[in-house]
Design a protein around this nucleic acid. Structure first.
Lengths: 226, 226
DNA sequence: GAAATTGTGAAGCCTTTGTGAACCAAAGGT
DNA sequence: ACCTTTGGTTCACAAAGGCTTCACAATTTC
């Protein structure tokens, strides 16, 4: 039971789902609002500023992915946590979901216990903002909003994946990130990609920002040294 | 490859499923035990205390849901992770309606890589709060996140096996670890390796961190002294 | 003192990682 | 629409270095 009750907006066209999920979240001590489609969801989100928005992917009129994009563009809601609800087996939607800026996805059907756990984990992540938008080191500074790295006064623009990998490593300098953790954090939960891909991205970071900052712990992973 | 190998109990009445899932989990570095029905599963679970129990939902005699309930009631196993295996298309509402206390659901058939990912994600979720990430002694401190040992202010980076061996010994200072135990904890249960390998790694630890901290009990094993 | 166990040094294997390049897909410009 | 550019992924090969083994010396046990 959370100390302060948080508001969750459930957006799904199926009233049964809304009720089922809403009921379980209520049971867990959250405040719940619902919306039956993307458009209404966005309107309510802007007005209520919920802590978390659960978005069904497949909806008539405006699907969850489009709604998510718009929520991310709107200044009021761009900071909200957004999680997708998608039917199991729709792997493609998972990938598209992360591209559009969601924080998590949850496959339906989901057991109440699992749902609550996921939601609480998300809330926790939001509460300790382990990711400030700017990081500064002797070697360089990172600005997440601008997607830019500044080194010796020179601005370096990094592609998405490289930037996210860099940001992840720099979020805890010295800590070793295993390949698994990197994969789930940068690429997403179930995205299947050969882990050698990480090596290639590390190499690019090394060539652009200096080899000395990225140490490899053989058999374990990589870490960033300031 | 997990740092220290975890035990997973696969409970399914179909031997093919047991073998398939078991094989993939083994490949991923887990220790695998199997049971052919709920009753046997519960018995084995209480004895083995696996880190994760994969429960088929549909089983003769005792189905997964009933087994899960009993596992949750038993003091020894109520802390275990439990995930259901259910065939795609099975009437889910029955399962979802039950809040039988499972931690996740996995639909069969499942791609090996997805299975591994799900399992590892589950492990991570449970593993983090359990084991402390840092150990501190007069002689040195161990930081699991950084895979580093700090001695007199000097940071020493250790290779994977050496680090895990060190961490194991230091997890209970003064306690003697037999070779068997070291082998299963650090190398895993199915790895075939001459036990002289342990000696070599002990020697490296001694040379790097000081001979005096690692005592050998002849005919038994090794222990760490602070 | 003989047998078993452990310490030690070195050598080879083999896994892991670095690297360059090719391929594919997506985005943007013309 | 077409072409160009760029990012992302994969692959093949090379390099590196950790892991393991082995032989032999040292130590302990009986």
């Amino acid at each position: 039971m959370p100390a302060l009750s948080k508001t969750i907006l459930v957006v799904d066209d199926d009233p049964d789902i809304r009720e089922l999920i809403g009921f379980n979240l209520l049971q867990a001590g959250f405040r719940v609002e619902t919306a039956e489609n993307g458009a209404v969801g966005i309107k309510k989100a802007i007005r209520l500023l919920p802590d978390l928005i659960l978005l069904d992917v497949m909806m008539p009129e405006m699907d969850g992915i489009e709604a998510c994009k718009q929520l991310r563009e709107h200044p009021k809601t761009q900071g909200c946590l957004i999680a997708f609800l998608s039917a199991r087996g729709e792997d493609y939607s998972q990938i598209a979901g992360f591209d559009s800026g969601a924080d998590d996805y949850i496959t339906k059907p989901v057991a109440p216990r699992v749902l609550i756990k996921r939601v609480e984990a998300l809330m926790r992540r939001m509460h300790n903002p382990d990711t400030p938008d700017q990081l500064a080191f002797d070697a360089f500074t990172i600005d997440r909003n601008r997607h830019m790295v500044t080194q010796n006064g020179v601005q370096i623009s990094l592609p998405k994946k490289e930037f996210e990998l860099l940001f992840l490593l720099c979020s805890d300098p010295g800590k070793v990130f295993t390949r698994d953790r990197i994969l789930t954090k940068v690429w997403g939960h179930d995205v299947i990609v050969g882990d050698r891909t990480i090596d290639v991205h590390i190499r690019k970071l090394r060539s652009k920002l200096g080899k000395e900052h990225f140490t490899t712990i053989k058999g374990v992973g990589y870490k960033f040294d300031a």
